[in-house]
Write a protein that binds this DNA or RNA. Structure first.
Lengths: 343, 343
DNA sequence: GTGAAAGCGCTAACAT
DNA sequence: ATGTTAGCGCTTTCAC
């Protein structure tokens, strides 16, 4: 299997072949200007012929900071697997990273292993920066990152002083959703989420309350219990006399929409459903989900931009990216008058 | 932002602190036996106090082969994003990799960039092995990998002489599906796939034909055209007088099941649908999909095992992993007698 | 059982 | 514009 001794060319070999010194080769491959065009060309050709590229590891050892982004996801593999968001994220990260010659190191961990992995990856210098997702309230990672002095950016959580963040503008979104629902006659709306400990949850709750007030809507809150025997029935049994719900993920919303009719709640006739994320899943179920699309790709690109400046030592500040778009589909309609008359 | 000069400890610092030489430290961290238990303990403690771990890059430079697996996926980000298989794969890879101290480098590329990325990652020694997925018929990567002499294993494609593969046993699965369908009275069944150029497609077609013959079922074939204005209508218009279809992915199947009734084909009354993959998507649509679950996690673990032996230079042979399980749900039922009487 | 020293492939001063 | 040289942090003979 390993018949050919996999001896890979070295910079010395390339130099020899091009009739120059190793440093000349190095200069060329690091865009330094002190090499004549002619020699540069010879060098590049020699490198091509030998199929040589600067060894990534050696490069790192000799000072030139590496190019690897660490993404450590602390989710059980099933909740990870059910969330199309991560696919969008990985896909969105991939292109801007490739543009700057970085690669992505990805892993899944249990929460109690999280800190260890961050430490190890950083100590071993496997990665040169981190992207933090699923930031929880009082997330210990913020502190950890600070102590490690590792470059990092937070994705999708409220801005924190120590670690720059990329967030999606939410306010207009709530405004749009509640305007839509108010127009349809809804007066009682619940917001349901499945991760009450995530950092953005409180902020969203607050914005929801504000926007609701502006439209004469009475807000309420409910938490999705994935452990329940029948999570949808469980939830529906707890949300009270609302005529619409805003659900924090489109997958949850899809489950609700698919299952609710089977337990006597027709959608959207009895209950309107809005999903706070959008993906191909939204149009897979019937009725198709009215959903808010988030600019995941743009967030990813912005994050990579921040990261790059961060490792270069440039000053960097948190950024927010373009708003969400409300995709009105079939899971929302006029409020049932029965309940409507209740307020 | 970078207030603390991020000077990380070196092996020398650890050695000094433990009152030994650098090589002693190295020995301890490489499990070499020539260090007394007492000194080893002191060394480990010193390392802990300094939060030191052997620098990954330096280690690689000094010969000790690295620990990074490259996964290069040549799909448009939307088809990547819609396929829960990849999430399962990544999740399944993550744990066995962590166990042997490897990390996963993941990227998405356009097909025409594929070869370049493999070459670069290998030449730069960013990765130390590759996992090949979505292997196409006459896939140029097999040849490329051979020329690079890079350790690699193929996932989910027929066994090739040069690169060891992990495949899922399929034969029993077709047998099970066709038995199920035959029992329900189906005599004409179509297999539909969306990637006719994938290496496993032909093999599956063949097995399908064999199994069908064994059950007196007339097999036919159709290709899903994602570019069509209405792919479901398009497909249904082309499949001919079949009463059941076996669809190569559960996402495609889900779309069919969701959309078919809207264009006058009720499922399963008029058409039974079997999905050749399973995931949470299968139970999201109504009717829930009868589907074949594949042991993705087991495949991933097996692949990692092969890889590890491969980089160690051990001999390695292709392996097949446990069969698929047929999850009978609601998208299959008795064949409509109208069409049934046709054969 | 422990340490000295050479070397891995590259980059970066510093000559020339 | 090009070459020389000294590291980078680690592993690994090979002495002690």
């Amino acid at each position: 299997m390993t018949e050919t001794p996999p001896k890979r060319a070295t910079i010395a070999a390339v130099a020899r072949r091009a009739g120059v010194s190793p440093s000349a080769v190095s200069h060329v491959f690091n865009g330094r200007p002190n090499v004549s065009a002619a020699t540069a060309a010879r060098i590049r050709q020699a490198a091509d012929e030998l199929n040589w590229r600067p060894n990534y590891a050696s490069r790192k050892v000799s000072g030139r900071g590496g190019r690897s982004l660490g993404l450590v996801i602390a989710r059980a593999s099933d909740t990870f697997g059910r969330d199309p968001f991560f696919m969008r994220l990985v896909a969105g990260l991939t292109e801007p990273l490739a543009e700057i010659g970085w690669s992505l190191s990805l892993t899944l961990v249990r929460v109690d292993d999280e800190a260890r992995v961050y430490r190890e990856w950083w100590a071993e210098q496997r990665v040169d920066a981190f992207l933090l997702v699923d930031v929880r309230a009082d997330d210990p990672r913020l502190d950890l990152i600070g102590r490690l002095a590792a470059p990092a950016v937070v994705l999708g959580a409220p801005i924190d002083a120590t670690v720059p963040a990329v967030t999606v503008r939410d306010d207009a979104a709530f405004e749009a959703v509640l305007a839509h629902l108010a127009e349809l006659g809804h007066r009682r709306v619940a917001r349901v989420n499945d991760a009450p400990n995530l950092a953005h949850t409180r902020a969203r709750d607050a914005r929801f309350a504000t926007a609701a007030a502006g439209h004469g809507i009475e807000p309420s809150y409910a938490v999705w219990d994935a452990e329940a025997e029948d999570p949808v029935a469980d939830l529906l049994g707890r949300i009270g006399p609302v005529t619409a719900i805003i659900v924090d993920s489109e997958v949850m919303a899809a489950e609700i929409v698919a299952h609710a009719p089977e337990i006597g709640v027709s959608i959207p006739e009895r209950l309107s459903v809005v999903a706070w994320e959008d993906s191909w899943v939204s149009t897979l179920v019937r009725p198709r989900l009215t959903a808010l699309d988030a600019p995941v790709e743009e967030s990813a690109r912005t994050a990579v931009g921040l990261l790059e400046r961060l490792v270069r030592g440039d000053g960097v500040t948190s950024q927010t990216v373009g708003g969400r778009r409300l995709m009105i589909r079939d899971s929302t309609s006029t409020a049932p008058s029965v309940v409507h008359g209740q307020d």
